[in-house]
Simulated assay, not measured.
Amino acid sequence: MDAARQPGAPLPERIVRAAIQWRLKLDVAADQARVQALIQRWCQQHPEHALAWQRLGGLQRELDAYTATLPSPELGIPILKRAGTDLQRRRALKLLTLTVAVGGPAGWLVASHPSVTADYRVATGERRQITLADGSELLLNSGSALDVQFSATERLLVLRAGELQVSSAADPNSLRASPLRVACRHGWCDSADARFVLRDQGSHSDLLVQEGTVAVSTLGGQQPLAVKAGERYALYPEHIEPISHQTIDPSAWTRGMLVVDDIRLDAFLQELGRYRSGLIGCDPAVADLRLSGVFQLDQQAALLEHLARTLPVEIVSRSRFWVRLVAKA
């Protein structure tokens, strides 16, 4: 341990966050022994790594008696993240006690909908453009949430839900600027000067590089893969695999469009539902109808009318929040 570090002194936030990620990965790992070996290797890389893991273990023991009362085990994640960069026990317990006292529904909302506490949130049907302090440009898609964590040594974005386009730029205030890192639940993407789209699909994240090169890494420690302009990859926690064909243009939303190629009607409506409040779907009898075309996301009424004209379907609408396509009589 660093002799200059005083007991209880704060650790760098990036190290604390790394320790939290290792804890969460261990909790869900099928191969516990393998993950524990990876954690031990990480702890041996630097004394501060080992100290962060030790403090996290102490905090976890303090929390064990309380977590059974939470409405969801996932609520421990935002609590740990908000507990401070040094993971001090008293502050963490205070936050946890407050969460339990407020009540189940509020706690469930935070755990089940991470966008509630995100730095940037985009409502359904909207898109939002953001210029960061380093000059990087972001575009957030409908229903997306993002955290921005910049420090003197790191430029980090955390995609908590949805999808974004990144146009990264070098930090003009540093001669040794670190790459811009975009983290998601399956890994992270590093770029110095690139433009790319990253989408959280639940089981994996989709990446399309439009300009430049992006270094992609998985949570499982796979060697970073250099993804070049025009290439598409699916990022899983343990591996990365190329995407050969997609029925949905992954970047069309940045131009306000939904562009599809030979897609099933039910899959099309599921994608369209990302941009609408309420429910939209179709009967199984017409689900496998296929369509191709270019559709304007901001003209939903005209879009649905076009479907009724070009496909053997009709629209049943109880309100603008409940729409269903059925076989034409």
Rank of each mutant, 00 (worst) to 15 (best):
A183C: 14
Q60T: 13
L98H: 11
E13Q: 13
H46K: 14
D206P: 00
G104T: 09
F295Q: 07
S217I: 02
V323F: 11
I15Y: 12
R160V: 06
D31M: 06
A37G: 07
A30D: 11
A30Q: 11
D134G: 01
L56T: 01
A308V: 01
G104P: 15
A19L: 04
H46Y: 14
H239P: 00
G256Q: 08
L258Y: 06
A226M: 14
G143E: 03
L159C: 02
D193S: 08
I263H: 05
P78F: 03
E231Q: 07
L291W: 00
C282W: 10
N141P: 09
D288I: 02
R91Y: 12
A106R: 11
G221H: 04
P172W: 06
L269Q: 03
A68R: 13
S178A: 10
P12D: 09
L175D: 12
L311F: 05
D31V: 02
L156F: 00
C43K: 08
A83N: 08
D27N: 09
W42I: 12
A29D: 05
V294K: 13
G58K: 13
S319T: 03
G135N: 07
S174Y: 04
T117W: 06
V158M: 10
V294M: 15
G230T: 02
D2T: 15
S142R: 01
T213R: 07
E126S: 14
L24I: 05
D200Q: 04
H239C: 03
